[in-house]
Amino acid sequence: MAEDDGLAIRIRGLHKRFGQKVAVDGIDLDVPSGSFYGLVGPNGAGKTTTLSMATGLLRPDAGEVLIHGVDMWKDPLATKAMVGVLSDGVRLFDRLTGQQLVEYAGLLSGMDRPTAQQRTHDLLQLLDLESAGGTLVVDYSAGMTKKIALAAAMVHAPRVLMLDEPFESVDPVSAANIRDILRTYVDGGGTVVVSSHVMDLVERMCDHVAVITAGRVVAAGSVDDVRAGSTLEDRFVALVGGRRVGEGPEWLRHS
């Protein structure tokens, strides 16, 4: 497939089953090059499984993932070189220091040590982790761990960043800094796909969004198109369902 189709990611017919549980049920998704793409859905909707298959961490039962026109499973080395991944819940090499972890990620990507060291220094400075660069990652807070994982995902200057819940456990100042960094990355021609439960954040940050529920895409397109004149949160609830309106049990009332 030609790269000039304008898509950073093209997903067709993606399926994944775990035993009797169908986690992803025939997802099709087009992520335009240079977009800031939000992936939203309730818990258990299949977002993490979809991202894992799109980044080569999990083999699909069926379907196709193309990264800038290159098939993820036919040429995994070429595609993975174009992708930076921050996976929610995946263990890091936390007995390394932050500096060692990011530098190691750079070396694994094939860059020479001086380049990896310089880029590591730049990223630690950018993410306000300079003072923690010599500290073991196992001793980092949850927010610091998220930031050092982001640095490791970015050190090889990928064309596409896929980030699973990148703002979870991150303080508001760090979250604002990360948003600025990602916006600069997109403005420079990169593509970001981010999954999040925070609708307001996605609405402010992303230009495209897909809503996933029960392993299927129920809406996708520009943020304006998907929210259809409403807020993204209200549109999300309407698409996904499950909202319960009521006063709650009597024993919870104190007046």
Rank of each mutant, 00 (worst) to 15 (best):
E250Y: 04
P60G: 10
R216C: 06
K16D: 01
V160T: 07
H254V: 02
S131K: 14
K74A: 05
Q118P: 08
A176P: 14
V245H: 15
S131M: 01
L126K: 12
G215H: 13
A151T: 03
C206K: 08
Q125F: 06
D61L: 01
T231C: 13
A45D: 08
R159A: 09
E250T: 00
N43L: 04
K146C: 01
L29N: 07
N177C: 11
F36E: 09
P249S: 03
D139H: 14
R10D: 15
V90L: 09
M111E: 12
V198A: 12
V198R: 10
H121F: 14
G229S: 00
L136P: 15
M111Q: 14
M162N: 08
V202C: 14
L163T: 08
A228I: 10
D71G: 01
R59K: 15
P158A: 04
R113C: 03
A78D: 12
A132I: 06
M1P: 13
C206I: 07
S131R: 10
M154H: 02
H208G: 09
I27V: 15
L86D: 09
R179S: 13
E3T: 15
G56M: 06
T145I: 00
H121C: 00
G246S: 05
L163Y: 08
V85A: 03
M1A: 05
R253S: 11
S230R: 14
K74L: 02
E64W: 02
G229I: 02
S33D: 12
V173Y: 14
T48V: 00
V218D: 11
F36L: 15
L77D: 12
V217D: 11
L58V: 04
T55K: 15
I178K: 05
R244T: 08
L201I: 10
G26E: 04
F167Q: 13
L86V: 11
D5Y: 09
K147V: 11
G34N: 05
H156I: 06
H208M: 02
P158K: 06
S195R: 01
A23S: 11
Q118F: 01
K74D: 07
L96R: 14
G84D: 09
A175F: 04
V24Y: 02
H156F: 01
S174D: 13
V83F: 05
K80D: 02
K16L: 00
T50M: 08
V211Q: 10
V137H: 10
V198G: 09
G38A: 01
A152V: 04
G63R: 00
L252G: 04
S109R: 15
K16F: 02
G98W: 10
R113D: 02
G84M: 04
R12K: 01
T145P: 10
K16A: 01
M82V: 03
L108T: 04
G63W: 04
R119N: 06
G110P: 00
M162K: 09
A157R: 15
D164H: 01
S169N: 14
Q118V: 02
A220I: 09
A142K: 15
V31I: 13
A116K: 13
D71E: 08
G84K: 09
V22C: 06
L101W: 00
D94T: 07
G221E: 11
S141C: 03
M205N: 09
L51G: 12
C206P: 15
T120G: 07
L126D: 08
L129N: 06
F36H: 13
D25N: 04
L29I: 08
V65C: 11
L127C: 11
G84W: 03
F93Y: 07
G189C: 02
L127F: 09
M72Q: 10
